[in-house]
Amino acid sequence: MNRLSAQEVDHLKQRLRTEHGQLRREVAAELARSSQGRYVELAGQVHDRGDEAVADLLEDLEIAALDRHVHRVRLIETALGAIDTGRYGLCRACGVQIGSARLEADPAVERCIDCQTAAEQGRHAPTL
């Protein structure tokens, strides 16, 4: 078992909090820009259907980026909650300790490498 030391958990917790704050600021800024009518501004500048399609595509890309940020914020909040309950670093699928190198690469990771590989390949990983 590859248990994390308290110092490692504190280090990863700080990284999670830093990223969480940064992402929340980015989401708030993006929402503020959206509420200022960026689509209306883009669409108002277009002169034909092709330009309008580009404006729609740009808006869709911004929404997709916002969705990714919100998803990442939720992952981070889940990881921070797991730290508080003492379950941080345990695979949500099989319960084994996630390797410290994997957690260092991504402190919000939810699965061990085997379960993540299985999920990406569409196979069912064991569940708790």
Rank of each mutant, 00 (worst) to 15 (best):
M1V: 06
N2E: 15
S5N: 13
S5I: 06
A6L: 11
Q7N: 07
H11M: 13
L12A: 02
Q14N: 10
L16E: 06
L16N: 03
E19Y: 03
E19V: 01
H20I: 00
G21I: 01
R24E: 11
E26P: 00
A32T: 04
S34M: 03
Y39E: 03
Y39D: 02
V40E: 15
V40N: 09
Q45S: 13
H47S: 13
R49Q: 15
R49K: 15
E52Q: 12
A53N: 07
D56H: 05
L57C: 11
L57A: 15
L58Q: 11
E59Y: 01
A65H: 11
L66D: 00
D67V: 01
H69F: 03
H69G: 01
V73E: 10
R74P: 01
R74G: 09
I76R: 02
E77G: 06
T78H: 12
T78G: 09
A79G: 04
G81R: 15
G81I: 06
G81D: 15
I83T: 08
D84L: 10
T85L: 12
T85E: 15
R87S: 14
R87C: 05
L90M: 06
C94V: 01
Q97W: 06
G99W: 08
E104R: 09
A105D: 14
P107W: 05
A108W: 06
A108R: 04
V109Q: 14
E110F: 04
E110N: 08
R111V: 01
C112Q: 03
I113F: 08
I113K: 10
T117E: 15
E120H: 09
E120W: 07
Q121K: 14
G122H: 09
R123W: 14
R123Q: 14
H124Y: 09
P126S: 12
